[in-house]
Computed example of a mutant assay.
Amino acid sequence: MTEPLETPDGTVADSTGNWVDTMAPAMSRPYLRLSRADRPIGTWLLFVPCLWGLALACLSTGRFGTYDIWTFVGCGIGAFLMRGAGCTWNDITDRDFDGSVERTRSRPIPSGQVSVRGAVIWMAVQALLAFFILITFYDTAIFLGVIALVPVLIYPFAKRFTWWPQVFLGIAFNWGALLAWVAHTDRLGVAPVILYAAGIAWTLFYDTIYAHQDAEDDALIGIKSTARLFGEKSRVWLRGFLTATVCLMGLAVLFAAQDRSILALLVALGGPWALGWHLTWQLAQFDPKDGEGLLKIFRSNRNAGLLPLPFFAAAWFL
């Protein structure tokens, strides 16, 4: 295995100058880096589907109350904690692979800053705190939250047995669309399931772009990804995922807003249109050889995911 990459003060090579490096207590920094607290984009990508699910649930029922405010807050804190726990689990399982990749070998475990035992304890603490939030929701939502652990546990191993690990990431990262809907309605329905599928297509889009950063290193160590699978045809596949995301979200809106006015429905449909516009812009910027550009596109998905929400909120008032 390649020797750990030395970085100043234990920083991670591809994430420097952030608040963890400059403001967090020195003792906490390796653990916060393990949770990717220095890279908030992952928390946003976990939180945004929750916002979609809650917003469409409120649009569907025509109500928004105090409990929904707690759902919003709880999902936000839970996204931060579960993203941290998931990243910690991912680094535990990938510690040998990470040590062989230039971009990741300075991470806390392969660089020796955190032991595997310490990482396991840290993962358990984060997951337990998230569970305390989960049990404040309806029983159906609690059940869904527990089931969500299955794809989270599987995902780090997916890239070892399938060319489509991004599907498993999508299954895990978009679960909040189902959970937030159920937290509002106490039942599932067609709309949240379709919205969930839209989120998976969106994840396939942005994480295929992200995976192109490591395509060469992944090929050397035998890691599979959609970026490697698609190769020069990635742009065609990305266009397909873009189309699927927009169409599926639009269909979810139709089911969620079927009892609302025509004007409300038309306004809500502006949400998937706005998201599609941003993804089209991302596709135009896509260059698989430009590592910095790929990371910039990937990070822009926070803004992309938030674009539908003003349309959903406006439709609620109509």
Score class of each variant (00 low, 15 high):
91 D>W: 00
76 G>A: 13
87 C>R: 03
92 I>K: 00
77 I>L: 15
80 F>E: 01
93 T>I: 14
67 Y>I: 11
76 G>M: 11
72 F>I: 11
68 D>I: 10
87 C>S: 06
67 Y>C: 04
65 G>D: 15
71 T>A: 15
77 I>N: 07
82 M>I: 11
86 G>R: 05
92 I>C: 09
66 T>L: 15
67 Y>T: 14
71 T>I: 13
85 A>G: 11
89 W>D: 02
92 I>H: 04
62 G>D: 09
70 W>L: 14
71 T>H: 09
83 R>N: 06
75 C>P: 02
72 F>G: 00
93 T>L: 12
83 R>W: 02
67 Y>E: 15
85 A>W: 00
77 I>P: 02
88 T>R: 04
84 G>Q: 02
62 G>T: 05
91 D>C: 09
62 G>F: 07
73 V>L: 15
73 V>C: 13
66 T>N: 09
78 G>W: 02
82 M>P: 03
62 G>C: 08
73 V>S: 06
61 T>C: 07
65 G>C: 05
82 M>Q: 07
90 N>R: 06
91 D>F: 01
71 T>C: 14
62 G>A: 10
70 W>H: 12
69 I>M: 13
85 A>R: 01
82 M>R: 03
78 G>L: 07
86 G>M: 03
64 F>D: 05
72 F>N: 04
75 C>V: 11
74 G>H: 08
63 R>D: 13
75 C>H: 03
89 W>S: 00
90 N>D: 14
81 L>V: 09
69 I>N: 06
80 F>N: 00
72 F>A: 13
62 G>K: 08
65 G>P: 05
86 G>I: 03
80 F>S: 06
74 G>V: 08
83 R>D: 02
69 I>Q: 08
86 G>D: 04
83 R>K: 10
88 T>N: 10
65 G>Y: 00
79 A>P: 05
83 R>A: 03
71 T>K: 10
64 F>Y: 13
82 M>G: 00
65 G>L: 05
84 G>T: 01
81 L>C: 08
79 A>F: 03
77 I>W: 11
82 M>N: 00
72 F>V: 07
68 D>V: 12
65 G>T: 12
80 F>M: 14
67 Y>M: 12
61 T>W: 02
77 I>Q: 05
70 W>S: 13
83 R>E: 04
84 G>R: 01
76 G>K: 09
81 L>E: 04
86 G>F: 02
75 C>N: 02
89 W>N: 01
91 D>I: 02
76 G>W: 08
63 R>Q: 14
64 F>A: 14
71 T>N: 15
92 I>A: 05
88 T>G: 15
74 G>N: 09
81 L>T: 02
71 T>F: 09
80 F>Y: 11
91 D>T: 02
80 F>T: 08
88 T>Y: 01
66 T>A: 15
64 F>W: 12
65 G>A: 13
85 A>S: 13
84 G>P: 01
61 T>Y: 00
74 G>A: 13
93 T>K: 11
83 R>H: 07
72 F>M: 14
77 I>G: 07
93 T>W: 14
72 F>Y: 13
83 R>C: 06
92 I>V: 13
82 M>K: 05
71 T>D: 08
76 G>Q: 10
65 G>F: 01
71 T>Q: 08
63 R>A: 14
64 F>I: 12
85 A>E: 03
68 D>G: 11
78 G>C: 10
65 G>V: 07
